[in-house]
Design a protein around this nucleic acid. Sequence first.
DNA 1: CTCTGTGCAAACACTTTGCAGCTAA
DNA 2: TTAGCTGCAAAGTGTTTGCACAGAG
Lengths: 143, 143
Amino acid sequence: MAQIDNDKMVMFEERCRKAGLKVTHQRKAIYQTLIESKLHPSADQVYRQIKRSISTISLDTVNRTLQKFNELGLAFTVEGSGEARRYDGNMHDHQHFKCIKCRRIIDFHHGEFDDIDIPPAIAKIYKILRKTVYFEGICDKCK
Amino acid sequence: MAQIDNDKMVMFEERCRKAGLKVTHQRKAIYQTLIESKLHPSADQVYRQIKRSISTISLDTVNRTLQKFNELGLAFTVEGSGEARRYDGNMHDHQHFKCIKCRRIIDFHHGEFDDIDIPPAIAKIYKILRKTVYFEGICDKCK
DNA sequence: CTCTGTGCAAACACTTTGCAGCTAA
DNA sequence: TTAGCTGCAAAGTGTTTGCACAGAG
């Protein structure tokens, strides 16, 4: 383990204990691997990486652990929901709010979000095709 | 078909012809169903709905068609990528750019996006837990 | 008539679940 | 010691693919 990550690992262990989670060597390895990666890895990618040092680890453990981290706020999901793709046929400017409990996706419209500026540093490097402002939380019915 | 949607259907047929796509009754039904729904349906939900009137339609057709619409800009994906979930362990404020070609997700940070305001009308109804600004496009390597 | 689109079935990829044995606290 | 965790295997869910037939242009 790189020295530079010591602080983060200590913090991680504290967070686990506070949440009543046991600090297993698998969990440490998964957390370590995740924060060292800049590639926004999938569970499978994390699994392959760890398998080099802990050959007995299973993909399920990685899956379950990453989802646990997500719940605890130690990590989060940036892509894919594990659920089916969902489509929107409304091509007018609008934004989405998703309830993490009932999974409803609700449209709303706030004019200021329609034309958020692309930072010049980004526009210079990438060709932006779509800009999204997206909120997640608990809806009125689930509160 | 509701009268109110006639304009959209005509536009839809034109868009298809321009793109060299045949205007089949399945495609019309799928488009119709999608724009009538406010629920951001999955392919399966669209399929079940259409099956009532076109009992021979297959889920594959719905899947393929919705993805085609997505390519053409007649609809878009609001949730789920069809790919595996991907995680991020970086809990500092930052935003993501995703290349739709190579699927890379790249972090960037633009301070103004850290504190975008939640519209009061939204904050009143929902409990917001996460705010995201997200760009999609073509990265430097794929251009 | 031709060539794209469709329906079907099988393959595939990812995630979830149940359970017995293991291990951190 | 014991409650929670892990590894395994099987099942579940969603998506993709190859192919023969159907139907739009």
